[in-house]
Amino acid sequence: MSTDGPLTPTQSDDLRAIAAVMIPASTEFDVPGADDPVIQADIVTTLGRDACLVREALDELACLASAPLAALDPARREAVAMELRAKGGAAVETLTRVVLQCYYRDDRVVRSLGLEPRPPYPRGHVLEDGDWSLLDPVRARPPMWRRA
């Protein structure tokens, strides 16, 4: 397997494993887990400036697990993942964010939330005007600003 990417094969496996713990697939909502290959590919190819901190977090994870995370039994895998989460810090926050930001822009996930999988521009959105009569009691108030 190539090691030209931002992560080693072991780190990629651990990323996939912890992503599955973070966001598992759901049949109820018809969504993949964050270990889905398309989502994983999005994470890895868009790591960019986050790569260094993500690698740092995965190294911390490897230390906590003392083995590849994917090789652990599910209970131990979850325990290690939660230990990493509790530990916190910039690296763990970055790892968590990159998983969330790729998961919640996946077409399947976005559709399951009732949203359209598209950028805001150029179609924008419709905003209802609202009930301007709500302002009536405020309009009736005397000036509140202090004259100076």
Partner: peptide, 19 residues
């Protein structure tokens, strides 16, 4: 526009009598 969020907040402010 007030929108949904603005409407909810406006109603809350009116309940409190705040500007």
């Amino acid at each position: 526009p007030l929108g949904r969020s603005g409407t909810m907040l406006a109603k809350a402010m009116n309940r409190l009598g705040w500007h």
